[in-house]
Amino acid sequence: MNDNLRIALAGNPNTGKSTLFNLLTGLKQHTGNWAGKTVDLMAGTFTFKGISYEMIDLPGTYSLFSNSKDEEVARDYIVFEKPDITLVVLDATALERNLNLALQVMEITEKVVICINLIDESEKMGISINEKILMKRLGVPVIKISARNKIGIPMLLDTIDRLIKGNIPCNPYKMTYDEETEMKIEQLIPFVQNITGEQLSARWLSLRLIDGDKSLLKEIEQRLAKKDAI
């Protein structure tokens, strides 16, 4: 591995995720193969203000609940490869469903930037988005962009830069669920911490386990058995 900072690009399918990826990385793209996986992901590099970044284009998914191989790949990357920043691309014209995914990403990782793409399309359709309110509620930077028409890109890059340098706060909103679910999460957390310590979000992991996600536990077991840091 090189010492580039890694940005994982997550989002629903059809959100213009790859347009943004292409715009930022140009032709400096390659297929990256990551640790112990036979899965190839597109990765590209770019430099901003003297810092080199490697951007990883995760498969477009509707959720991170591991309903499909793509979802597992995207989730595993964020959970186990721990990118320096996860950039969630949302479709401004279908924000509700897209926010769902953002909320799920924010449960897993701490450094999240949300960019709302296709902002020009949504404005044409009479949708106006107050990103300041969203930013306040979500606790992470929210940037409105149009990758196609290159709107808001400097702002996005600047935000990434300032986040990396610790100049802006990032406290992702953590979902709270109904009492029953919360109680179950509380019960499971100690068991999880026993195994993974502080390496992963014990809360999130507990939630996934209560939801019956067995593949996740297998993955962790394999990684621990190989003495990989997780």
């Binding site: 926010l99 949708i127 669920y177 939801d211």
Partner: peptide
């Protein structure tokens, strides 16, 4: 449990939408 989780995620998204997004003459494409 999945129903509850997703329902609450949607509820949260929906609340965020109500607070942060306004539809003026919202029309379909």
């Amino acid at each position: 449990i999945r129903d509850h989780i997703v329902e609450q995620l949607y509820k949260k998204s929906n609340n965020l939408m109500k607070e942060g997004v306004t539809f003026t003459n919202a029309k379909m494409d």
